[in-house]
Nucleic acid binder design. Structure first.
Lengths: 209, 209, 209, 209
DNA sequence: GATGAATGAGTGTTCATTCAT
DNA sequence: TATGAATGAACACTCATTCAT
């Protein structure tokens, strides 16, 4: 696709995710893209259309990632009939974190959503879905299947999902969705979150067997 | 203090916490306060000064609340030498949630911080301190003291604090810092968070004894 | 009323009546009023509001004039029970022409209407009413009353009204609603129209008696 | 000639005659013609050139019509040495009205002229010539010749021309040069104007003989 | 305490036009 | 013939702010 349009999208997201949609002017965007303001309107109907294209792309990307993770983990569990917490499974979570939470594009859109969700119903819906409903729902499903397979003691799978997701969410918010996303902050998250995931599944194992 | 100034602050915060500082115009504020724009400049040096006064008041309020909770809980524990999870202690947490996370003023400032933290170092500092550092630090201290007192098995108190705080943070973000703060959402949080706190301490008790 | 606002209205009408509403920019207006563009928006909500205020004022003015002429001529005729064409009555028409067709304000609004009526339903309505319906209706009424009083031979009063109004309308369009309204053009109209009115009534008299 | 160019001219005139030259953008034109904006500049030097071509074509067309009518009516009168008002002559006027005032192209150009004449000297000249000077001059000539031939009582032929033309002009302005040119409005004009022409010549006949 | 009037800088957007393809 | 991509100038309008009253 057109390089200029691509760059407009890139720069726009960079700025939107930092300052919020309305605090970023077309002028700001053009200054960085190195084009004149009128050029933007060749590629986009208006400012709003930039935002919409970004969100559309995000939903596609996020849906793809989420469903791929879901499928992979469920397949893995089904096939091996073993407890979670294997090296391979931990790696799956890690891969997902890297591509979803720490990837420039997704991270930025989610920052943007977290700014705009306070006044925009649509944004609020997306924010809730991708931050809470979808990940919690997925994790609950995983635990529920483990319970049904007798691998995990029967209990409230939703509660377990929140217990698992809570600390990850704290780490993510603190290191990945605060200030600017640097390599140091990513590492801080990795150390905290990856360690936590391992520990969690280890403890889960110990509790059962 | 002057009623008009008070109302300007109130309305400003209402709007800032929804749309972000720069997306709110003096006009917007004045429309709701029912004054002319020039009047604002009798009470405040400029727009920035409104924000600053709001932040200053928040820090005072938040500091007061946090330290009062800290003192109360530590005293309680010290005095009784008992495990946490008593009715009284749970009530303390609940009181704190009500006054800190669910109170109009504090909730709104924290929403504002969460919008502005992405591009403003100062805001980022406040956000991190009041969202993560302070509450996690406090909870860690509580657990550490319990460990030192032999009431809790020695372990990583910071890790324990995150495990405790994680789900609460998830619930708070989902129900108290999304969309608009309604009584229904508050109840959703109460149900989830208060239930969680009780369960957490119950499980902690079971694990030890 | 405020002098600046007044001047904005005056200049706006001057320009609108020459170039049409949409071809005149706020900049154009401000250049002549000698104010900054933002000042306009202190006095008017937007560009459209200037137009609306002009139209409202015109309708008031025009209604006042038309009804005063109507009343005066009908009274005159009633009282004297004589044929029209007296010096006094001719003077009334002339006075009306001067104040309505040749007056700066009304003339300009009607020019504006004649530009805008092609695409704006509202303008079309006003244009038709004040250019055709009202003057023709009034003149028809005058002739009808004369017929009922036996002063004029019974015939189609509407047709008679058009015959009377036609040439006046031609003169008005040619000399008052073309190019720019100068004293020379006004005089050209006066000569043509005043002469015509006299002649018309004289011929009308001759035809009857 | 090129179909695209033809369509550009057609659509341009449609829009110009409604909104005025400067209120119509190249974009507006291209939207309807279904071409890209840059394509216009293959066919025309610039926007102004579209207007100029339209005006040139109009002058040719109008000149042709006017002179054909002139010739026809004068010949007719000369040959028959009779009073005007014959079926055939009335039909000539009617044919002229249909092709000149009511024809899409000419009607639209004259609407355009009536918009633009207020600020453009050139347009003003064309407007005056084709709306007043030419038709009045022609009619005056007809009456003068009739007077010279002794068919009509000697009098002010210019005054007679205005008396004849006045109502027609009123009807034309009201029904053909207001709002949008519909079949209903055309019929309203036909009824009024054709009836008027007949009546006028009948009365003229009665007055003399 | 509050406001009427004004403003310079900046907002998103549209304009006619160019030019390489 | 036609268009994709770009642009400088202008557009209506909003902004935070000032200052005399």
């Amino acid at each position: 696709m057109n390089a200029t349009k691509q760059k407009i999208l890139k720069v726009s997201l960079e700025l939107f995710s930092r300052y919020g949609y309305s605090a970023v002017s077309i002028r700001d965007i053009c200054r960085q893209v190195q084009i004149k303001e009128s050029t933007v309107y060749y590629h986009f109907k208006n400012k709003q259309a930039i935002l919409e294209e970004l969100l559309a792309r995000f939903e596609q990307t996020a849906e793809g990632m989420m469903s791929r993770l879901e499928q992979a983990i469920l397949e893995e569990q089904e096939r091996k009939e073993t407890l979670p917490g294997t090296e391979k499974q931990n790696g799956m979570y890690e891969g997902f974190f890297e591509q979803y939470l720490m990837d420039g594009f997704c991270n930025q859109v989610m920052r943007l959503l977290s700014i705009e969700q306070f006044h925009d119903k649509n944004m609020q819906g997306l924010y809730d879905y991708w931050m809470f409903e979808r990940p919690l729902g997925f994790q609950e499903k995983v635990f529920r299947l483990l319970m049904e397979a007798g691998i995990l003691e029967k209990s409230d799978s939703a509660y377990l999902a929140v217990k698992f997701y809570g600390p990850i969410f704290v780490y993510a918010q603190r290191w990945l969705f605060s200030g600017s996303l640097s390599e140091e902050r990513k590492n801080a998250f990795r150390e905290a979150a990856y360690g936590y995931v391992k520990k969690f599944f280890r403890e889960m194992g110990e509790a059962k067997w």
